[in-house]
């Protein structure tokens, strides 16, 4: 097991050499991920691991990809998507133009889910979906629109549970063990790297979706990111978090009101 001291050294290297600041990530999870990568890549000593990190730019891409958690699903938590369908999209539809930010979008499953919701609500043509992540590798995958065929059964069930009425397979074409989602869903997506730790607000949005990203941050960084979101949300727009995340203890809490049972808040001040 890598000691806490060595973790500190590795985090320092990453920050000083590459500008990635993981010091405010929740340490237990981060330590577990670094240990996992260390044994996965069969390093023989911490020194070997550190010098690889310091000297091999290509390895950093892998390191970031493996250290950050990129597990995601389409229509995960169907009740959440149901609330988006029934409570949020009808309100967003009254705007002439809808800007949505998926912060920490990983491989994009939630962005495609959202595009499907918007299309079914007849709103996709006037929407823009900004999808950002710290990790260029996952953005490439998201941009490709190609997902494993083996996941489609689960996604289709999630989709139906969320209130979807179409045949889910009508949204993609299958090819061997992968499926490619229809290009019209992608047309309104803009993919870009963005680091929630160090990058600032870049637009004003009607809905920000950031689910199961903040659990990897410590409280101090969570607070900074909440402020970043607050700066990026117009009045009466929405913020959606993961099912175990909350605005409850944050400094911006008083400006927001939870819409219903799901972790969706509306900015009221």
């Amino acid at each position: 097991m890598i000691s806490d001291n060595d973790i500190d050294l590795i985090l320092n290297d990453l920050h000083e050499i590459y500008g990635y600041d993981f010091n405010y990530y929740s340490r237990a999870s981060l330590k577990r991920r670094i240990n996992r990568l260390y044994s996965l890549d069969k390093f023989l000593s911490i020194n070997e691991f550190r010098s690889k990190i310091i000297s091999d730019k290509n390895y950093i891409k892998r390191f970031i990809e493996e250290i950050t958690v990129n597990v995601t699903e389409m229509f995960r938590d169907s009740s959440f998507y149901k609330e988006l369908r029934t409570r949020i999209l009808p309100v967003l539809g009254t705007h002439p133009f809808i800007r949505i930010w998926h912060a920490g979008c990983s491989t994009g499953e939630e962005v495609y889910s959202m595009a499907i919701l918007l299309q079914e609500a007849g709103l996709l043509h006037k929407s823009l979906l900004y999808a950002t992540d710290i990790n260029p590798g996952v953005l490439e995958k998201a941009q490709s629109g190609i997902f494993p065929l083996s996941h489609m059964k689960q996604y289709s069930e999630n989709y139906i549970a969320s209130g979807g009425l179409q045949d889910f397979s009508s949204y993609y074409t299958a090819n061997y063990d992968g499926v490619k989602f229809k290009p019209e869903l992608q047309k309104k997506m803009i993919f870009s790297t963005h680091n929630l730790v160090s990058d600032s607000s870049f637009n004003e949005f009607h809905l920000i979706i950031c689910r199961n990203v903040l659990i990897y941050f410590d409280k101090e960084l969570q607070e900074r990111v909440f402020n970043l979101f607050d700066e990026s949300l117009a009045n009466l727009s929405y913020l959606a978090l993961g099912s175990k995340e909350t605005l409850k203890f944050s400094g911006i809490q008083h400006k927001y009101k939870q819409v219903d049972r799901e972790k969706i808040w509306r900015k009221i001040k």
Binding site: S26, R27, A28, S29, R33, V69, I215, K244
Partner: peptide, 21 residues
């Protein structure tokens, strides 16, 4: 531990949740 999350413990005696593999 909530369903579908790993449950981890921080040095400051608080919980962290994790949705990794």
């Amino acid at each position: 531990a909530p369903a579908d999350y790993h449950l981890l413990i921080e040095k400051n005696i608080s919980f962290s949740l994790d949705f990794s593999e």
